[in-house]
Each structure stands twice: as C-alpha cells, then as structure tokens.
Amino acid sequence: MSDYDDTYTESQVIMTAVKIIAPFTLTYGLFMTFHGGDAPGGGFQGGTVVGVTVLMLAFAFGIEPTRQWLRNSFITGLVTGGVVIFGAIGLGMIALGGEFLEFYKLKEVFHIKPKWGLEAVEIGGISLIVSGVIISLFFTMAAGFTPDRPSGTGGVSGVDVDDAPDAAEPEVSDDD
C-alpha cells in the first residue's frame, strides 16, 4: 500500500486559472500548428501545446473526469487518424510518380505550391499524432503501475489480486 494520498483535491484558484488560460493556450497551439510552414512552430510544437492544454484541464478538474470526457477511442482515433493522413499523403506522392513525401510532384501534376503538401502533413498528420501521444502517455502514467492491481487498472497482466500473495503476511507451510 502506498504512503501518500493520491485523491483529487478541488482548488478554486487552479480551476479558475485554468478556465481563463486554457482557451488562450488552445488558440496558441492551433495558431502554431496552422502557421508552421510560414513561422516558427509547426505540427509538432502546436500539437504539444494542444496536448498540454488537455493535461492542464486534467490537473484542474481531475484526471478521471477528463479521461472519461476524452474516451480512449477518441485518443486512439487522433493518433491513428494522424498516421493515416501522414501515410496517405506520402503514398499519394509515390502514386504521382515521386518519392515518399516528395511535394514537388504537387507542382508538376496539380500546379500548386509544394508548400501545401507540407502544410497538410503538419496540420493533418503530425499535430494529431503528437497531441494524441502526449495525452495518452499522461493518462497511462497517471494510472500508475502497482503489481497488486489486476490488469486493466494499471497492474500486471494476468495477475489477480485474490491470487497474489499478500506481502505483509508470509505464506506458512505445513512443514514447519
């Protein structure tokens, strides 16, 4: 059993501060994502700021309510969608006769700037992957790891609490 109290304590100061700051950090993260090709930033940095905004909400309003609000299927969809978009754009360039992510084929075939291919990869692929991975890693680490919990609640896979020996009580055999 752990020696610390890990229960959620509500703080009106933190909740109010997060309510005020979160819209600005989310807007800044989206700004960085959408202006990545023209200014410092991009999909990685913007996705990080968006992901950290969700973490900030979890710290203020509780990890479990935030985890329930952002279901695992949604976070998995973010990461999977980003990978699919990234791969589809890369493979699309191969289909146009170029190399993987060779955006100059966009100019040759569609007469549009190669920059739009990079923007699509950053906005549609990288930012979704990064924000989803940050959020999922946070929830995974917040669940913790204790060998005495059954699988599905952060414990060791296949170990049932009833079947595991208690560390405080040594097993006694009949041979003694």
Rank of each mutant, 00 (worst) to 15 (best):
S73A: 13
F74W: 07
I75E: 00
I75Y: 05
I75W: 08
I75P: 00
T76G: 10
T76N: 12
G77M: 02
L78F: 09
V79C: 01
V79W: 03
V79D: 00
V79S: 01
G81E: 00
G82Q: 01
V83N: 02
V83W: 03
V84F: 13
V84E: 00
I85Q: 04
F86Q: 04
G87H: 07
G87Y: 04
A88N: 09
A88E: 01
A88T: 10
I89M: 08
I89T: 04
I89A: 02
G90C: 06
G90K: 04
G90D: 02
G92R: 00
M93T: 11
M93H: 05
I94C: 07
I94Q: 08
A95I: 03
L96M: 11
L96A: 08
L96K: 07
G97Y: 01
G97A: 13
G97R: 12
G97N: 06
G97W: 01
G98R: 06
G98F: 01
E99F: 14
E99H: 10
E99R: 07
F100G: 02
F100Q: 05
F100D: 00
L101N: 13
L101I: 10
E102H: 15
F103I: 08
F103E: 08
Y104L: 14
Y104I: 13
Y104S: 14
K105T: 15
K105W: 12
L106H: 12
L106V: 07
K107T: 12
K107D: 15
K107Y: 14
E108V: 11
E108W: 14
V109K: 15
V109N: 15
V109A: 14
P114T: 06
K115H: 13
W116T: 15
W116D: 10
W116P: 08
G117T: 03
G117V: 04
L118C: 11
L118V: 12
L118W: 10
E119N: 12
E119I: 13
A120G: 07
E122L: 01
E122I: 02
G124R: 01
I126T: 09
I126S: 06
I126R: 01
S127P: 00
S127N: 05
S127L: 05
S127D: 05
L128I: 03
G132N: 06
G132R: 04
V133F: 08
I134A: 11
I134W: 00
